[in-house]
Design a protein around this nucleic acid. Structure first.
Length: 167
DNA sequence: CACTCGATCAGCG
DNA sequence: CGCTGATCGAGTG
């Protein structure tokens, strides 16, 4: 009985474009990078609970702060249903990284108790459904190399630059 | 279940 | 500086 909640899809307007947020009954499920141009997303029926709107407000505020190179004051609840414990551990660990600081994949691995799972950590980062809010861009390779980024490497560089991080 | 790949890392020539 | 092996989780057939 997989009641597939029609995820609420709402655009998040920022100076960098319109991100697209997807919410379930439990919280933010997914956040997409700004689509090319007229990413005309239909807010569907905004008949959803005001709770979603409240979350959306938090999402918007947090997103803008991080895009500006600062830490988000508060994040909306994140719904990581369907993900593995390992991935969630990795993401939760990344959430602890403050703006302007960076960690290596190896450090994340060590922090969650699997010092050797560095490759796996990389994989988890790539599977992160909520970029920016979960600062996957603050994770660099051990030797200071920038590594990769699923939303396009350009974003990673831009975000780091705004936070005052040099690569 | 077996096999492959990845946003890694550390060691060695 | 470039190549190789070690290692872990996830996806695929």
């Amino acid at each position: 009985m997989k009641k597939k909640n029609p995820p609420a899809t709402i655009p998040v307007e920022t100076a960098d474009g319109s991100f697209v947020a997807h919410y379930s009954e439990k919280g933010l499920v997914d956040l997409d990078w700004p689509v090319k141009k007229n990413a005309r997303v239909r807010p569907a029926n905004m008949k959803m609970s005001g709770q979603v709107l409240r979350w959306h407000k938090l999402t918007t505020a947090a997103l803008k702060k991080i895009l500006a190179g600062r830490d988000a004051k508060e994040l909306p609840p994140l719904d990581w249903a369907g993900k593995t414990e390992f991935q969630i551990s990795v993401w939760r660990e990344m959430l602890k990284i403050p703006a302007g600081k960076t960690k290596s994949y190896g450090e994340i691995a060590a922090a969650i108790g699997n010092p050797k799972a560095v490759r796996a950590v990389g994989g988890a980062c790539g599977a992160n459904p909520v970029p920016v809010l979960v600062p996957c861009h603050r994770v660099l390779a051990a030797n200071g190399k920038i590594g990769g980024f699923s939303g396009g490497l350009a974003w990673k560089r831009t975000l780091l630059a705004r936070e005052g991080v040099k690569v």
